[in-house]
Design a protein around this nucleic acid. Structure first.
Lengths: 245, 245
DNA sequence: GTCTATAAGATGATAGAC
DNA sequence: GTCTATCATCTTATAGAC
């Protein structure tokens, strides 16, 4: 699929049309159309994804957004409120789309579902958003990746918004692998989750390790490999009786 | 292996005997024997692994180490110097052990090497250190995990110290999968690396997702699953001609 | 909604006594 | 090696004018 533009299972995601906003859109810095509020979120999203919560100051956010620091507090209260707002802004659409994609796939294929097809449906939306949703989505993907890897931060938030989609995925995997045990499925998913997280971060380490042979930003290819790798991994781990316990 | 105490391929790692220190060991806070320098590193390692570089202040490090803030600067200069010192302290032993483990395995098995055996040798040392090397090693494992997931931090350092071991691993995989192409191997490793990183972080997300069925801290089990998952994944991805390019 | 001004405190780092 | 004292700066956050 690396060379094709249209995803097979997920509808081509692009920049969201956005929910109909009420009232007049206030002017932004460069004459760019957009809420002040949104431009603050954009700036914060960018910076948080690169330096983490503590590595970003309100002043930096305000400067990058082209607004006054007081405005950041006006809209979001304390710094943590800003972070949460950034995190939540795209969480619903991100996960709704994944759930819809796998449900659509399950409905279309029924008993003919394959792990490859299911993972394709589940993984492609975030990759497509990161690739074609504009810089904000790429920053957001990196932020999710970093938050997922962090022990203290966003634990509850991640679970609240992201776990339901994962639970639905595991339900559908059970239909494909009826004899799989829950422990095996969760541990297998854990392996997939790590791969997904590292990929969305686009840290560039793979580029260096492979001497440029692979590019972290090539999410199409990353997705192709991940689908096949994970499908085989799930089969190996959930196939027969577990080795432990 | 979850129930056995002795690792199969790696020598049982425990708290390092430590290189012979010259001079008298200065007293520490609670009468505990240990360098002031080391106790600063221990405190910093703990805090950095939980809150990241910017989330930790020199004052907090000094307080947890039971020393004065000025001493932190005396030993490590700027804050970044402290972070690097923490990171480097265990990097060599960590990677040397992995390389020795896979080399030993290759020498013992020769043409009979399996992916499972090789990954077992490669993955078990860090898991064993994290489990039985004392709290410092657990903190360090989490720090490595977090650093690996971070785009801006420790990129060069990670590559400098950790890539050689990975390159050696890939060399040996090539002996098992002679027809595998480099691109495939690197992307496959990327999937394994993500799983490893997420596991070492012990974020607790899996616990919540699985309603307590799986525990993040159960690195024995995590390793068992990872070995099988990754071996199958590599075979699937490196088996025949790649689907892309 | 947006700005100025500023409070109130924390931060990294250093100089210098002992 | 270890401590006290301190600097210069940056931090989040708010009050209040417009």
């Amino acid at each position: 699929m690396s060379e094709t533009n249209a995803p097979k299972t997920a509808p081509a995601p692009g920049p969201a049309p956005g929910p109909a906003k009420r009232g007049r859109p206030p002017k932004a810095k460069d004459g760019v159309v957009g809420d002040t509020r949104e431009s603050i979120l954009d700036a914060a999203e960018d910076l948080f994804s690169k330096h983490g919560f503590y590595g970003v100051t309100i002043r930096e956010v305000a400067r990058e957004a082209g607004v006054d620091t007081a405005l950041v507090h006006y809209y979001f209260g304390a710094k943590r409120g800003l972070f949460d707002a950034v995190f939540l802004r795209r969480a619903a659409i991100w996960n709704n789309e994944r759930v819809e994609a796998i449900n659509r796939y399950a409905k279309a294929e029924g008993a003919n579902m394959t792990l490859e097809g299911l993972f394709e449906a589940f993984l492609r939306p975030p990759f497509q958003w990161s690739l074609k949703g504009g810089p904000g989505w790429k920053h957001y993907a990196a932020l999710v990746a970093q938050t997922n890897a962090n022990p203290t931060f966003g634990g509850e938030t991640m679970a609240r918004y992201y776990d339901p989609a994962i639970r639905r995925l595991i339900e559908l995997i059970k239909q494909i692998l009826p004899h799989a045990q829950d422990v095996d499925l969760y541990w297998a998913y854990h392996n997939l989750s790590g791969a997904l997280t590292l990929t969305l971060g686009e840290t560039g380490r793979l580029d260096r390790l492979s001497n440029g042979l692979c590019r972290s930003g090539d999410l199409e290819t990353a997705g192709d490999y991940m689908v096949r790798f994970a499908a085989a991994g799930f089969r190996a781990v959930c196939g027969e009786a577990p080795a432990t316990d």
